[in-house]
Amino acid sequence: MTDQTMVLRVENISKRLGGRQILKDVSLELHRGELKVLIGPSGGGKSTLLQCINFLIPPDEGRIWLGEQQIEIHRKQDLYAYRQKVGMIFQDFNLFDHLNALDNVSIALRKVKKIARKDAEERAMRELERVGLGDKTTLYPSQLSGGQKQRVSIARALAMDPEALLLDEPTSALDPELIGEVLGVIRNLAQDGMTMIMATHQLGFIRTLADDILFMQDGQIIEQGSPAELLDAENGSRTQAFCAKLNELSDESET
């Protein structure tokens, strides 16, 4: 699915928070249709990196391009336009508590993109059907399960026609039996050629779908490569050791 068109380029991002260096000189490139996966120990900077990419946390240093255009954080209108094109999925969903599923998806279309209510709702309806929630449009967040909430949040991001999606551990706040439905939706997106960066520890998913793995530790990308390269039991990579550990833990919890 990957072609050589550059969608997103991140160059030398650094960030200090509370006197601690969270990100050190991180760079990455994302091509059209590519799925890059961020893994690594918690506190390694995965979440901060994703939030720096759409300036929810402004990086101290570094530059970011969307296609050919370098993003100037100080030009508010440019920043808002950029964020509309880079969707974000949060670990804890962050749905709007006062809106039902349909309005959660359509509100940004109506208020930010200024699309007429009827068209916005039609579009929202299509996106909710795409994530398998066509029959849940009138329910409020408190009436949805975790997996359903995360699927609404994916529909909300998709409705904006993003050029890339940033997914920050989208399944780690979910009960084990709900993970599958969310991963299923993301899998379909990957197969349809959506460009994505995703922090996740779902190894099965990573093995089958990731084009590239970025292993992050102490605010740096210390290893990068395809799943075949990095997860090969023979190669002694840091990534492989980490994943073996994850495997052990998940085996233990299942027995």
Partner: peptide, 24 residues
């Protein structure tokens, strides 16, 4: 988190205030 979500969707501060924060 809801404020982050509005920002990530490209809301201006005024728009998040008006359509998400205030109604709640």
């Amino acid at each position: 988190g809801q404020l982050l979500a509005t920002q990530a969707l490209g809301f201006s501060s005024m728009q998040s205030m008006l359509w998400v924060i205030l109604p709640q």
